[in-house]
Design a protein around this nucleic acid. Structure first.
Lengths: 256, 256
DNA sequence: CGTATCTTTGAAGGTAGTCAAGGACCGTGG
DNA sequence: CCACGGTCCTTGACTACCTTCAAAGATACG
C-alpha cells in the first residue's frame, strides 16, 4: 500500500483545529499516540504560524522563543559564514521538529527558511521541560526526533566531505524523493521538488555553476526528470549505486 | 580560574568506582546532579569498558546493545563509503554520550573508534526508556546532549561544505583546542593532540597530502605548534579569523 | 637493525570554482 | 500587445584548488 492512497493533506490551508483532528496523524508514517499524550501535545501547542515561500522561520542571529513542528510545506536549516557563503544543513518536511538544537544554545545558532509556503505548530520553548516532566514518553519521542535529525546531518556531512559532484547530486535526489514519498508528497511517481539550483548547491557544498552542469549531465544520462517543480526518478538503482546511498525502510516517527 | 586548577582526571586507569566518586563530576564543565539522580545514573550504568588506542568501540555494521559515556580518552564517530572513503563525523571527549543516534535506527549506523586508550561507562540500550520514565530530568539531559552533538555536526558540515583547506584546518585546531581545554586536557598552554594527519584529513574532507601541506603552511606562518602529541595555539585570533569560527563560552553540560 | 607507521615533498592531472554572458520564463505595466 | 525587469537556468572559457601518484625522510618499536 502506497502513501498516496492515504488522505494525507499535502498543503492544507491552515492548521487551526485541535490536534486530535490533525491530518498528519492519519499518515502511517507517524506513531499512534494515546489520548492522554494527545491532550498533552494539544496543551503544549501554543498556536499556529504561516510563513510564505522564501520567508524566514527562525533567524540565524538568535534562538527563537518558539519551537515548531512543521505541519505543511518544505523548509531547510542553514548556516552562513560572515562573507555570505551558505551551507544548508538539512531539509525539513511535515512532521519535523524545529528548534531543539538551540534549546541548549551557547550561541552558534542556525537559521530556518521556508522553501514553499509553510504552516507550523508553535510551542513555547520554556514549557519544554514541563512536557518532559509530565509526559516522559513525549520527552523520549523528542529525543527520538533529535537523534533522527542528527543522522540526517551525519549523512550530509559524508556527502559534503567525501562524495564527488555526481555522487552528491545522485544521493540528494534519491534522498529527497524518498522523504517526499514518505510524507505523501508523491503522486503518480512525481515528487514535489520546489528547490532551485542554488538550494541544491548550498546543500551539497558545490558552486551554482557546477551544480547546474552536474544536474544536466545526470539528466542527459536519463537518470531523472525534473519538470516545473516536480521530480521523477527514472533510474533509482543507478542513482543509488552512483551515490552509494541505499535507504532502508523508515520506522514510523513520533509526531509532536 | 582555569580548568587546569581542578583535579580532573586526565587518564584514570579505570572507572570501577561508584558514580558518586566519579572524577569527571568534580569538573565545573558538568552540571551538578541531585542524590536521587546520581542513584538513578548509578543503577542505569551496567559496567565499565576499556578500549585500547585504535580499537573499535562501536562497529559500523550494526547498532550496539550498549550505550556509553566516554569517561577518559579521545574517540571519534565516523562513516565509510563502500569503496573505503572515510568521513569523521565528530570527535568525542570525556563526558560525551555515545550511541543515541542508533537508538532509533533504521539501519544507516556509524562507527565509533578510540584514538587513545579509552574507558567507558556502559548502559544497556533497553533500559533507556525506563530512565526517561523514572527520571524525566535525566531524559531531558540526554536530549540536551543529543542537541549539542548535532550542533557539532552542523558546524562540521559547514566546514566540509563551504570552507577551503586553510580555513578548515584553522577551524579544527581551534575547535579541538577549546574542547580539550574545557575537558581539563590542557597543561601550560599545551593541549593533548593524539591525532595523526589521516584523522584530520578524514574529519575535514581533505586528502592526506593536502592536509599535510596545509598544516605545514599554517605552522610556518607561526599560527600553532605541534610537538609529539601536544598542540599549542600561538595565534588564536588569527586562527579564529581565518576559520571564521568564534567559540562562545560553553554552558555546563549534563553528565550521565 | 629491520619493519611498520606516519610525515614530508615534488610533480602532474583533474575536478570544481570563478567569470562572463546569453537564454528562458514570468509577472507587471506602459 | 509588447516592452521591461527580475529570477533562474544554461553554457563556454579560464583558473586554481585539491587529488593522485610517487618516493624519500623521520620516528617508533620489536
Amino acid at each position: 500500500m502506497k502513501f498516496e492512497d492515504y488522505p494525507a493533506p499535502v498543503y492544507p490551508p491552515r492548521c487551526a483545529h485541535p490536534c486530535e483532528e490533525c491530518g498528519l496523524r492519519r499518515s502511517p508514517a507517524f506513531l499512534a499516540v494515546s489520548a492522554a499524550e494527545l491532550d498533552a501535545i494539544q496543551s503544549f501547542r501554543s498556536g499556529t504560524r504561516v510563513v510564505e515561500a522564501g520567508g524566514r522561520i527562525v533567524g540565524e542571529d538568535r534562538p527563537s522563543a518558539q519551537l515548531y513542528t512543521l505541519y505543511s510545506g518544505w523548509a531547510f536549516r542553514y548556516k552562513t559564514l560572515s562573507d555570505g557563503r551558505r551551507q544548508i544543513l538539512s531539509f525539513l518536511l511535515p512532521g519535523d521538529f524545529i528548534g531543539l538544537q538551540d534549546e541548549f544554545a551557547d550561541g552558534h545558532t542556525h537559521g530556518v527558511e521556508a522553501v514553499t509556503g509553510t504552516t507550523l505548530c508553535t510551542f513555547e520553548r520554556d514549557t519544554l521541560w514541563d512536557l518532559f516532566h509530565t509526559q516522559p514518553k513525549l520527552g523520549y519521542h523528542i529525543t527520538w526526533l533529535a537523534a533522527r535529525e542528527e543522522k540526517l546531518v551525519d549523512d550530509n556531512l559524508v556527502t559534503a566531505g567525501r562524495r564527488n559532484a555526481g555522487e552528491r547530486v545522485a544521493m540528494l535526489l534519491m534522498h529527497l524523493y524518498r522523504r517526499a514519498e514518505r510524507a505523501g508528497m508523491v503522486r503518480d511517481g512525481w515528487a514535489e521538488f520546489p528547490f532551485n539550483q542554488q538550494h541544491i548547491a548550498d546543500a551539497l557544498g558545490l558552486s551554482l555553476v557546477h551544480t547546474n552542469k552536474t544536474l544536466r549531465r545526470l539528466q542527459r544520462l536519463g537518470l531523472y526528470k525534473l519538470d516545473s517543480g516536480w521530480l521523477r526518478i527514472l533510474e533509482p538503482h543507478a542513482l543509488e549505486a552512483l551515490g552509494d546511498y541505499f535507504e532502508r525502510p523508515m520506522l514510523p516517527a513520533p509526531l509532536i
